[in-house]
């Protein structure tokens, strides 16, 4: 069941190409349109920097779950550290403090090879990807998060069967860590419990529906690069179910909901990256490729609800 461990970057890239070709074989849609760019033996890891894509941000699924196919991964908090294997790979301590979920051994030196098949805090064992966001502070004290729910769905308006699995090793960042004012669009936002209405600033939440940071990642890919110099240019958001021609491959729309044990009033919140407007999150895909493909095909392509995240397992109700 576990993915083969790869020893070199080249092997990892071949895996990406293979995985992509496999999962696009039955859709003939987004996969075919980008197939030429990944059929080669070598796939470029890093795209040149360019104008940020998807400045408009995502269109999101809102309201009750159950209307579109999805699978949901619940990952408890793993650890924190001044690591950022996407933005500062190999440079321990250069990053601000991040909270990690998923693969348990993530640090600044982590690459896909070191994550595949390793321990994970996620309730789907093939999910050895890493998810992280800047550490939250309250009155200067670190707030240890509880867990994340990672929703994988076709973005609104996207034909589910056009969605292909994330390529192994793709690195995505939702939100702008340099922002000091409210970010445009809805890539990031704050909410209470399982509510889907986003706030620019953390709202005052009841104890049974505590504070969440909602991050929605890009769902369109250029079909070629796993990353880019600005960490944005290789991916984009769809609009009205359509990916831009520069990023024609439909990926799952990944929405990560980070739960913090914060409720009530009297908080003074900030992030390791700056004020609360600097909210952002990172995703480094190290899912077992077979496991991810299975969930994409069975749940997204078939448009069925494979998992639900709800307030039923939230912080204890009514204990505030």
């Amino acid at each position: 069941m576990r993915a083969l461990r790869t020893r070199t970057a080249a092997l990892a890239l071949a895996l990406v190409a293979g995985g992509f070709a496999g999962c696009s074989s039955d859709d003939g849609g987004g996969g075919a349109s980008a197939g030429g760019t990944v059929d080669g033996d070598v796939v470029a890891v890093t795209a040149p920097a360019g104008p940020p894509s998807g400045a408009e941000g995502p269109s999101r699924h809102v309201g009750p779950q159950g209307r579109v196919g999805q699978f949901v991964v619940h990952c408890t908090y793993s650890h924190s550290g001044a690591h950022d294997p996407i933005v500062h790979p190999g440079h321990e301590g250069r990053s601000h403090l991040h909270d990690f979920y998923g693969a348990t051994e993530v640090d600044s030196h982590s690459v896909v090879d070191s994550l595949l098949g390793e321990e994970t805090t996620c309730d789907k064992s093939p999910d050895t990807a890493s998810y992280w966001q800047p550490t939250l502070y309250d009155h200067g004290e670190i707030v240890e998060p509880t867990a994340i729910d990672a929703y994988y769905r076709a973005a609104p308006g996207v034909s589910p069967t056009e969605v292909v699995p994330f390529p192994l090793g793709i690195a995505l960042i939702a939100g702008d860590q340099t922002a000091s004012e409210p970010q445009p669009g809805e890539a990031v936002g704050w909410a209470c419990g399982s509510r889907t209405v986003l706030h620019e600033e953390p709202p005052e939440c009841p104890a049974s529906a505590p504070l969440h940071l909602i991050l929605t990642f890009q769902d369109c890919w250029d079909g070629e690069h796993l990353g880019s110099a600005d960490h944005q240019s290789h991916a984009a958001y769809s609009a009205d179910g359509t990916c831009p021609s520069t990023h024609p491959v439909h990926l799952p729309q990944l929405t990560v909901s980070v739960a913090f044990p914060i409720s009530g009033d009297g908080h003074d919140l900030s992030l390791a990256s700056g004020n609360v407007y600097s909210a952002h999150g990172d995703f480094l895909n190290a899912w077992d490729p077979d496991g991810l493909r299975r969930e994409v095909e069975q749940c997204i392509h078939r448009d069925v609800v494979c998992d639900l995240a709800s307030n039923r397992g939230e912080e204890p109700l009514f204990t505030g």
């Binding site: 309201g63 009750p64 209470c192 419990g193 509510r195 889907t196 209405v197 307030n311 009514f318």
Partner: peptide, 30 residues
């Protein structure tokens, strides 16, 4: 009690409507 509700209870006149014929809420209401 649902403190992070996405919608309010439907009126009684909607209770016999099959699930798949109910329009989900817009989700933009706090």
């Amino acid at each position: 009690p649902e403190e992070d509700a996405s919608d309010v209870p439907p009126p009684e006149s909607d209770l016999e409507i099959p699930c798949d014929e109910i329009d989900p809420p817009s989700g933009d209401e706090e």
